[in-house]
Design a protein around this nucleic acid. Sequence first.
DNA 1: TTAATATATAATGATTTGCTTATATAAGCA
DNA 2: TGCTTATATAAGCAAATCATTATATATTAA
Lengths: 114, 114
Amino acid sequence: MIESTVEIGKAASILKLLGDKTRLTMVKLLNNHDCCVCEFVEIFKMSQPAISQHLRKLKDAGVVRENRRGQWIIYSLNQESDYYPLVQNVLDHLPSQDYLLEKLEEQGLRISCE
Amino acid sequence: MIESTVEIGKAASILKLLGDKTRLTMVKLLNNHDCCVCEFVEIFKMSQPAISQHLRKLKDAGVVRENRRGQWIIYSLNQESDYYPLVQNVLDHLPSQDYLLEKLEEQGLRISCE
DNA sequence: TTAATATATAATGATTTGCTTATATAAGCA
DNA sequence: TGCTTATATAAGCAAATCATTATATATTAA
C-alpha cells in the first residue's frame, strides 16, 4: 500500500529523469551499491562530462546524493527523498544490472575508486 | 511483490512516456474511467491534434487501447500490456485526477461522448 | 609548488519533443 | 448525397535533450 502521493507535475519530472536508459540504469545500480563517476564512465562507455551531467540532473531532483571521499565523489541513492518510494517501486520492476559492476570488477576497474 | 521484470530499455521508454504531465494525467484518468479524445481536449485546454498525438504515443507503446463507438473513439488502459504492472504501480503514487472529470461534468461536457 | 587524477562546468551541435496550423478520413444525420 | 462532428495525419517550428570537446576546479602526491 502506498502511504503518500507525489504531486503529478513533480512525478512527471521524476519519471522523465528515469525515462533515460543511462540514468535509469545508474539509479538501479545505486540501489545496491554506491558508485563514483569514473565507474559509470567505464560502465556506459560514455564521456565523463556526459556522466557528470546525468548525475547532476539526478542530484538536482534529489534522487541521488553525493559524498566526496578524497578525490572521488561517491554517489548514492537519496533515501530521504520524497520521491524515494516512487523510485524504489519503479526499480522493483527492473532486472538487476549488477552484472555491469561485475564486469568492471573482472577488469580490475572497480577497485580504482575504493 | 513484483512477479516479473521489464527489460531496462523498454522500461525507460515507458517511463519517458509517463514523464510528461499531460500523458501522465491522461493515464491516471484512464485508470478509473475510459475517455474519448474530446474530453481530453476540454480537460487539457489543448488542441485536438496535440491530444491525438499524445494518445498515439501511448497506444504505440501498448499502454492504452482504443475502441471506436460510433463517431467517438474511446481510450482505455490496456491491462494486458506487459508494462501494465509497472504503470499501475506508478499510478498508485499519484493523487486522483478525477476532479478534472468532475469539472467537465459540471460544465455538461462529459455527456457529449456518452 | 607542480603534476596528475577526478570531477564539474561551459559552449556547441544534432536530434527529439511537443506544440501549432492545415488537411484528410470516418461516422452520423438531414 | 452533402454537411457536421470526431479524430488522425502531415508539415513546420521553437524549445528541450543528450551527446561532444574544451576548459575550470579540487584533491592528492611528488
